[in-house]
Write a protein that binds this DNA or RNA. Structure first.
Lengths: 236, 236
DNA sequence: CGTTGAATTGAAAGTGATCAAGGCGTGTGG
DNA sequence: CCACACGCCTTGATCACTTTCAATTCAACG
């Protein structure tokens, strides 16, 4: 039984057999979640670690005014450390996009895992990786126009999906609705629609019926403004 | 000789005497940097860890078009893991704001530190902390108006400065120019200026001559839209 | 006392949001 | 099997917030 989480951590640091075994054990108990379900509910024990073994999800926050911001798109192998600080409240959550397989690691188990040097290192590097991605998001939101930002995000998602072996030859399945895309990009669904049309007109990408086709990678990176550096090394 | 870095890590996890010693040793070699200097230069060995022992700095990225986005404001005790992925190139750097004291930890030393469970845990938690902050920035940039965003950032900086023991009673020194503020907020310096005036008119904050005065914390958090949750736990 | 970087002000131009309908596809129940 | 309903995508017109460009003022400093 494949475990994308373990695969990913192994790419980040050399792990002993024992460490690999411990990680498998920790994620052995997986539960199936349907699409469009909130993974984090009120009253959930915090300090846990959430591991996406299969399926897509996103981390989001709802602001007082009711608007929503997506802070991360989670794909198989990705992790969410629900460490104290947040999501005790309902204003911050994680929602599945597709049907998913999720494992939950208890805080005590996480602590135990961290005592093993290889695992500690791998978890640390994985976190650094996520941080690089977040920084790229900040840059996008702060200094890119909507078209650049959209191109940038699509490129990121495409590359990440490719790394998982999903899709080939410029085509991957991208189960995000324009609404979710909008909340990730910090814009309106209406405007996302127009921007996608513009990208299509530029012959850069097509996104239709949940299928993303990168017609012209060069044009897309050009529009995005060359920032996929942070992804190049992601994975090794 | 105080070491804010060690102080901070101790707040994140219980450390043995030996671990504390190792951290002190690793940051023993500090160098003084003048204000407005780039800390990361081309050709710098990557994979190092940069530790701010004293002074302020910011992490930024310059886009092709020449615009700049600040991704983090670094204060004493804060860390920058220059892990591979980025800043090999000149497009991403760290610049001091004030005169500063900085220690550099070599990759090999970092690896060694990580083998000690308490340190591994503390570094991990510190990283989670930074991540929470980055996520909050993403939310701000994506779904807050410029006034809310500015209020939010000023509040964050104020609370972080307070925790360091700098300033009291609603007044702290904030050495950021409006230009840097603008690049952190993803807006124009001109607009930052107008927004600050608006905040002053609302009797929420005053920022003049590098001194930030929170006239009315309630009003400020109100405008910011209540998102300082992620800071409350920061520090313990 | 001039020079320099930062802060401030005003007017014009854009970019993206908002509001309001309409279209399309799919699944479900009559 | 058709029809309706619901979610999602699409389009148009208008409005608002921010940027841009261009000067001007201010404060610190040599």
């Amino acid at each position: 039984m494949p475990n994308r989480y373990v695969d990913k951590l192994r790419r980040h640091a050399a792990l002993t057999e024992h460490e690999v075994g411990a990680l498998h054990d920790a994620t052995a108990c997986r539960r199936a979640i349907k699409a469009r379900r909130d993974l984090v509910r009120e009253g959930d024990e915090s300090g846990r670690m959430l591991v996406m073994l299969d399926g897509w999800a996103f981390r989001y926050k709802v602001l007082p005014r009711g608007t929503r911001q997506v802070m991360a798109i989670l794909m198989p192998g990705d992790v969410c450390d629900l460490n104290g600080s947040d999501l005790a409240e309902m204003d911050h959550g994680i929602q599945t996009i597709t049907d998913a397989q999720v494992a939950t690691i208890a805080p005590s188990t996480v602590s135990e895992l961290m005592t093993q040097p290889g695992i500690a290192r791998a978890l640390y590097v994985a976190l650094l990786d996520d941080q690089a991605m977040l920084r790229a998001w900040v840059v996008s939101m702060g200094r890119r126009t909507s078209i650049e930002r959209a191109a940038s995000l699509l490129l990121e998602l495409y590359l990440r999906a490719l790394r998982l072996g999903v899709g080939v030859d410029g085509v991957v399945e991208l189960p995000l609705s324009q609404v979710v895309l909008a909340d990730a990009l910090g814009m309106t669904a209406v405007h996302v629609n127009r921007v996608l049309q513009e990208l299509r007109r530029a012959d850069a990408v097509e996104l239709e019926r949940r299928v993303l086709r990168i017609s012209n990678p060069g044009a897309l990176t050009e529009i995005a403004g060359f920032d996929d550096n942070y992804l190049v090394r992601r994975g090794h």
